[in-house]
Design a protein around this nucleic acid. Sequence first.
DNA 1: CTGAAAGCGCTTACAG
DNA 2: CTGAAAGCGCTTACAG
Lengths: 338, 338
Amino acid sequence: MNLEDIAKLSGVSRSTVSRVINDDPNVRESTRQRVQDVISRMDFQPNLAARTLATGQAKVIGLVIPMGVSTMFTDPYFPMLIKGISAACNAQDYSVMLWLAEPEYERRTINQILHNGMIDGVVVASVLMDDPIVEALIHSNMPFVLIGRHPTNSQVNYVDVDNRTSSRQLVEHLINMGHRRIGTITGAQNMIAGSDRLLGYMDALTQGGIPLDLELIASGNFTEEGGYAAMKRILPHRPQAIFAASDTMALGALRALEEAGLRVPTDIALAGFDDMPFSAHLRSPLTTVRQPVLETGMRAAEALFDLLENPAQGPTHLLMPTELVVRESTPPQLQPTS
Amino acid sequence: MNLEDIAKLSGVSRSTVSRVINDDPNVRESTRQRVQDVISRMDFQPNLAARTLATGQAKVIGLVIPMGVSTMFTDPYFPMLIKGISAACNAQDYSVMLWLAEPEYERRTINQILHNGMIDGVVVASVLMDDPIVEALIHSNMPFVLIGRHPTNSQVNYVDVDNRTSSRQLVEHLINMGHRRIGTITGAQNMIAGSDRLLGYMDALTQGGIPLDLELIASGNFTEEGGYAAMKRILPHRPQAIFAASDTMALGALRALEEAGLRVPTDIALAGFDDMPFSAHLRSPLTTVRQPVLETGMRAAEALFDLLENPAQGPTHLLMPTELVVRESTPPQLQPTS
DNA sequence: CTGAAAGCGCTTACAG
DNA sequence: CTGAAAGCGCTTACAG
C-alpha cells in the first residue's frame, strides 16, 4: 500500500495524495475529504524511509547515552530522563533512536550518528568532559544539545541544573546547622556534574570561612560501592557531616556508617543530591537537592526541536531550577561543636 | 557526499561502490582496495534512508515499553533491559528505536510501529494482558517478540522468566523455614508477571497443605506505595511471613512494618522478587528471586534477529533461569508456630 | 568483474 | 486546484 494505491482508489494523482497528507492548503476541500477517507479506511501510513529521503527530514532525534560510567545507568535518573525526552517527542510527532554508546563501539557510533541520514539531531546525556562523541558533534554540522553544560565551549547548546550553586546551598545549610568538619563524597571528576558539585562544596566552605581539609574529601565515582569506600576513607578523620554528591553514594555511605556503628543523624549528619525515590524512605530521610529530571529531558528535546526549525539562533543555555529538600538526616546541632 | 561522489573519486561506477560497501564477492581485489580507500578517507557512510527504501531492510528494531504502569519505569529493571537489548543490537549492527507508549497516543503509536517502514521488527516489554499493541502486532505481519509470555496465544514469540515456578520455590522456602501464615503482596493482576507470581504462591501453599487465606493476599500493583498499603491491609491478620511479588513492593512493606514497630526478620519474615541493587543492602538483606534481566533483553533482541533472518521458523518460547537468593530476611523459625 | 538502468515510495517545483 | 516529471541515494537484476 503506497501513495499510488491511495491515488488510484480516490481517483486523483499521487501528488494530490501527498498534498493531503502534508496538509497543503492548495487542495479543494471536497478532494481532500475524499482522499482523507480512503487514507483512513486503508489505515495508510506513508513510508518514512521514502519520506526522509525525499525531504531530508527524518522526524527522528537520536538520544546518546555514553556508557563509560555504565554502573550509573541503573539509577532512576536515566529512565526519568528518557521519559521526559520521549514525552516531548510524542507531543511533536518525533521518534527517538537510542544509542547506549559503549566505549568499544565509539568510533562506529559516532559515524552512525553523524551520517546515517536517519536522524535530524541528537541529544547527548550524562556527558564526560572531553567526550569524543561531543567533540565529533562539535566539528560536524549535526544539530545537538547536551544534557549537562559543556566545560569550555560556550557555543554548545545545553540544558543543565546549576549543580554548583545548589551544592553550595546544600553545604551552607550544613554549616547553618552548626557543622564545621564537613566532608564530601565526590562524583566522578571527569564528569561535569561531579566537578561542579565539588566546586559548590568548596564555595560554601570558603565563604563560611572554613579551611579546606583534603582528608575530608574522597571520590565515590557516583556509585553505591564508591560511596561506601569513600565513607570508610573519610571516617577516621571524624567528620560531623557528609555531603555526598549523589543520593546513590549517600546510600553507600550509610552502609559504611552502619557498619561502623554510627547513626544518622545522631552521630553524623548526611546529605545527598538528586532526591531519588528511595531517599525519602530511608530510616533517616535524606536531606538532598531535588532536580527536575523529567523536565530536563523534555526541555532538552524541545531545545533541539527549536534548533531544527531555526538553525540560525544563538546557543541555548538553559539551567533548570533545583530545590533544597531538608529532611531528618541533617538536624540542627544543639551544642555547637568546634 | 554520496555513492556517486565516491564512484567518481575512485574511477568506478556507482554500482561497484555499492558492491564494495555490501561485501559483494564479485569485485576485483584491486578495485575493492581502491574504493575502500576512498571510502575510509572520506569517512563515508551510506545514507540509511535510501538504503532502507531500496532494500526494504532498515537494520533497526523498535523497542516498545507500554507506559500504562508508568511508575514502574524508574525501577532499575528497565534500564537493565534496555542495556541488554542495546548490547545485542550493537553486536549485530542494528539500531534501536524507542517508544514509551503512553496510553493517550496508543492508536498513533500502533500505526507508527506497524507501517512506518523504518523498523524491521519490534520487541515489546512489560506486557499487560490484552495489550492493544500486542493485539495489533498479532494481526499484522510485523515480526515481534514479547518480553513476558503471552497468556493465551502460543504462536507468539517470547522470552520470559519462569515467574510461576520461581515464586513457588520461594514460598516453599518460606514454608521450609517453618512458616504457615504466609501472606503475599501481589503485582498488578493485569500483568502476566503479576498473575504468574500469584499462581506460584498458590501452588506452594496447595502443595504444602496450607489452606488459602484471602485476608493474607493484597495487591501492591508493583509499586512501593502499593506495597506499603497492601502491607497495612494484611498486617491485622497476623502473617508470619510475606512474599512480596517485587523487591520494590517489599520496600514499601518494610516501611509499613517499621511504622507498626515490627522488625524483620525477628517479628516477621519478608521476601521479594527481582533482586534489585538495593535489596542486598537493606538493614535485613532481602531474600528474593534473581532474574537475569540484562540477558533477557539480549535474548529477546537475538530472538528477533533470528526471526528476521528466518521468518518461517516456529515460535520461540524462551524461559530464562532464575535463582533463589536466600538472605537474612527469612531465617529459620526456631520454635514452630501454629 | 563491471556498468547502465530500473526501481524503492515519497516530495515538490513547474506548467497549466 | 491538479498532474506529469524529476529527484532524493541507494540496490540489484540484466547484459556484457
